[in-house]
C-alpha cells in the first residue's frame, strides 16, 4: 500500500502539495488526474524517494521512506517499475541492454536467463524484433513500450506511469493504454498512472483521483466520479475544450 500522509511540498515558494492525504489502493490501476503543473510527476517521484516532502510522510507497505537511508531506499525502489514521461531509455545502450541492465546489476542470473527474461518482456510489449535497436531508432510509441518492458523486467509490485500517452497519436496512445491494462491483468501489479488525458484515464483507471490546489479534490471509482457534483472536478472538466463528459 502507498500512502501519502499529510504531505507538504513547495518549490521556490510555489505550493505543490498542501496537506496531501491519499491512499493508493493495492492491486488495481489508480489514475491521478490533474491539470499540468499541479505536481502529478512530483507525486510519482515522491513515491520512490526521488523528491522528498518538506513535511509529512510517504508510507510504502508500512514503511516511511522520507529521510530513509539510501541503502534501504534502494531496496524499496527494487519493488517499483517507473515509466518516465520521456521514456528515459539510456541512449548509449540498445533496447536489449536497457532492459537487461537491472537484471545484470541486481541479480545473479546468467546470460541465458537474462536473455530469456528480456525476450519475455519484449514480447509482452510487442517489440520482439527491436532488441538490437537503439532508442534513437525507435518511434515515440515504441520507446514508451520499451520503457514499460524495462519497468517490468524485475517483476515489480508497483508500476508508476508518468503521462504514458502524452505526445502520442490516438492509435498509439490506445496501444499503450491496452498495454497498461494487459500488464495490470496479467501481472496483478498495483499501477499508478498520472495523466491529464481524460480518455486515457477513462480507459485504464479502476480508481481515479483529482489532484488540484495541492490536495486530492475528489477520489473514487470512475462511476462515482461520473455522478459527483464536486466543484473542483466540474471546473477541471469545463476547462477541457472538447466538453467531454467524465469517466
Amino acid at each position: 500500500m502507498i500512502t501519502f500522509d499529510h504531505v507538504y511540498k513547495r518549490f521556490n515558494g510555489n505550493v505543490v502539495f498542501n496537506d496531501l492525504v491519499f491512499d493508493v489502493p493495492d492491486g488495481i490501476t489508480t489514475v491521478l488526474l490533474g491539470p499540468s503543473g499541479t505536481g502529478k510527476s512530483v507525486f510519482l517521484k515522491m513515491i520512490i524517494g526521488l523528491i522528498s516532502p518538506d513535511y509529512g510522510y510517504v508510507w510504502i507497505d508500512d514503511r516511511n521512506i522520507v529521510n530513509l537511508k539510501t541503502k534501504y531506499l534502494y531496496r524499496i525502489r527494487e519493488q517499483f517499475g517507473f515509466v518516465f514521461q520521456l521514456s528515459a531509455l539510456f541512449d548509449s545502450m540498445s533496447i536489449y541492454e536497457n532492459i537487461a541492465l537491472p537484471l545484470k546489476m541486481h541479480t545473479q542470473f546468467n546470460e541465458e536467463s537474462i536473455y530469456s527474461k528480456v525476450n519475455e518482456c519484449l514480447s509482452l510489449v510487442d517489440l520482439e524484433d527491436a532488441g538490437h535497436l537503439y532508442p534513437e531508432e525507435l518511434s515515440g510509441g515504441m520507446k514508451k513500450r520499451a520503457a514499460i518492458a524495462r519497468a517490468l523486467v524485475r517483476d515489480p509490485k508497483y508500476i508508476l506511469y508518468d503521462e504514458p500517452t502524452t505526445g502520442l497519436d490516438p492509435r498509439t496512445a490506445a496501444k499503450i493504454e491496452n498495454l497498461i491494462i494487459k500488464v495490470q491483468q496479467e501481472r496483478k501489479v498495483t499501477s499508478v498512472v498520472v495523466t491529464h488525458d481524460l480518455t486515457s484515464a477513462r480507459r485504464v483507471g479502476q480508481y481515479v483521483a483529482l489532484l488540484t490546489g495541492g490536495r486530492i479534490a475528489i477520489e473514487g471509482s470512475p462511476e462515482e466520479l461520473d455522478e459527483s457534483a464536486n466543484q473542483e472536478l466540474r471546473r477541471f472538466l469545463n476547462e477541457i475544450p472538447q466538453n467531454e463528459s467524465l469517466l
Binding site: K45, T70, Y74, R77, L89, D91, P102, M105
Partner: peptide, 14 residues
C-alpha cells in the same frame, strides 16, 4: 535533462 539519471535511481542504481 532527459531524466535518464532519475531512471538510474528508479532502477536502484546510484
Amino acid at each position: 535533462v532527459s531524466e535518464q539519471v532519475d531512471a538510474l535511481e528508479s532502477l536502484a542504481l546510484n
